[in-house]
Nucleic acid binder design. Structure first.
Lengths: 295, 295
DNA sequence: CTCAACCCATATGTTTTCGGTATGCCAATG
DNA sequence: CATTGGCATACCGAAAACATATGGGTTGAG
């Protein structure tokens, strides 16, 4: 069963004439006649009544016509849908994000995305530092908003911004009275550390910052999320050095202060599989850049 | 867009491998690979991700797969439906019948039809003597139960039975006392005549009957239907010579009596267009014969 | 580290099928 | 009887599909 035959069949049925249909199909009449007869042979029954004034569907032909025109429409629609998905006009984009960025970026990013790619279903998933690579690699998220960037040979990274580090402390802390905290004041104070997933904690941005200023802060706790870090800070367990944007999700009772002399910052990046050919990624990147710009 | 390509595409998508799909399709692997690439070229986007362990649908491919498998099913179903209609297992049969036969034949015929061709939609239309030919010729009925048969070069006829003529009269008529009415008693009595559509009324079966017995009955009225004839008989306008089966639809107050010495009968026939190739006609004919047999 | 296995892609020749042109047949028309 | 209109058939050249042979990449075992 060839789709071309069905197309010809529908054309002849509508034109009620082989000649007229051939004209509309921009082909000669004889081959069309042959194709119709082949279709009839394939079905095993006449589909048209040949009269002296053209052709007329038999009942078997009518039964076929209903399905055939629908099948044609479906096939055309399938091709169109596939093109639309490939062009990024339809489809699904699953966006992963790390919790730190949720409050700072998502409120700007989501409306931007909906405006840019209205036909696309979006879904969002929070990523933890430990699973974000796997989620990209197994394609359960297409694109991820990360801080800092992921380093992996299969994963492509675009840096879209950076956040300075700030010191998070309880509002009652004596350091909170200062406008900006000199690095020296941190010496010896307990630190709530995050495992930035550069695997080796010593190489993390915070560790590097402290090492460069020759400050030693004993690690009071090591936690997975910014969330937990702030809870421990609030409980008086220690101080945390966090990207500025964490401020937006901070509970009452925590204050952030800039670190004087510390120009270090941590990258905000968009990451995706290098082999992912989704055209939505480019659009996503533009939206993300726009959403991050004011920071 | 070729249906074969879609079939190949679905096979590869399901097998998640060109080689496996080729095996299932009983063909070599390279041409299948080529066909898939041609489909991708036609769509204008990759439909599969080629991995080292087979192929995997892209999102565009998924969008196509949904429609493609549906289109395939629809096309197959269309062919099957056309075959079923051609074989008389499905479809529509419109049956015309003349009023005289309604009471005698339809109650047996309809259940018989439903049993024989359960997948077929039946519809019934009452035919008048004057339109029955036209209804067959323009195909608004496929098959007609007629009394008597239609004579027309385009119309084929099968005689399935015959009904003797009887005399219809008011119950109070003196003739009603006789068990069988001798033809001679009809001499000079007014007749309610029907225009059996052999166009020339003189050639109708009733006229022939009277002529053969050398009886003259003045025509009191000429009416279109058996119905009307019986009404006029009841009103005392005259007598009518009707097929025996008309008895079943007769109003109270009318009695039927056999005509002694008159062995004439009128055919019950099934008629259809000579060029109608519907296989339902044969089945209908069998059912009609069975329904008429006990008469 | 090399080798075999696996799987998809490409190349080439043969066969099938399709579309075009020329023509025949039949019925309706004048 | 000739003409017209419409579908069917015959034949030929072109295009497409399939099969066989082969290349290249990755995986996994020895």
């Amino acid at each position: 069963m060839d789709l071309r035959r069905l197309r010809y069949f529908v054309a002849v049925a509508e034109a009620r004439s082989v000649g007229k249909a051939a004209e509309r199909l921009r082909m000669a009449q004889p081959p069309l006649s042959v194709q119709i007869r082949k279709l009839e042979a394939e079905i095993g029954a006449p589909l048209f009544r040949r009269g002296t004034r053209g052709m007329d569907l038999t009942e078997a032909g009518q039964a076929l016509l209903a399905r055939a025109s629908e099948a044609l429409a479906l096939a055309a629609d399938g091709a169109e849908a596939a093109r639309a998905v490939a062009a990024g006009k339809r489809g699904r984009l699953s966006v992963g994000y790390m919790f730190v960025l949720a409050n700072a970026v998502l409120p700007r990013l989501i409306p931007e995305l909906r405006r840019s790619i209205p036909g696309v279903d979006l879904d969002f998933a929070e990523l933890s530092a430990s699973t974000r690579e796997a989620r990209l690699l197994d394609r359960s998220v297409t694109v991820a908003l990360c801080m800092p960037a992921i380093h992996h040979p299969e994963i492509q990274v675009a840096r879209i911004g950076a956040e300075p580090f700030m010191l998070a402390m309880p509002i009652r802390s004596p350091l909170a009275r200062l406008g900006a905290v000199p690095m020296a004041k941190l010496q010896g104070r307990p630190l709530i550390a995050l495992p930035w997933p550069d695997h080796d904690p010593a190489s993390s941005a915070v560790a590097a910052l402290l090492r460069r200023h020759q400050i030693v802060m004993p690690i009071a706790s090591r936690v997975e999320t910014v969330h937990s870090a702030m809870s421990l800070v609030l409980a008086g367990e220690g101080l945390a050095i966090l990207p500025a944007c964490a401020q937006l999700g901070a509970p009452r009772g925590i204050v952030f202060r800039p670190l004087r002399d510390a120009t270090d910052s941590i990258d905000i990046a968009v990451c995706w599989r290098r082999d992912s050919q989704s055209p939505l990624i480019r659009t996503f990147l533009k939206c993300a850049e726009k959403a991050v710009a004011p920071l």
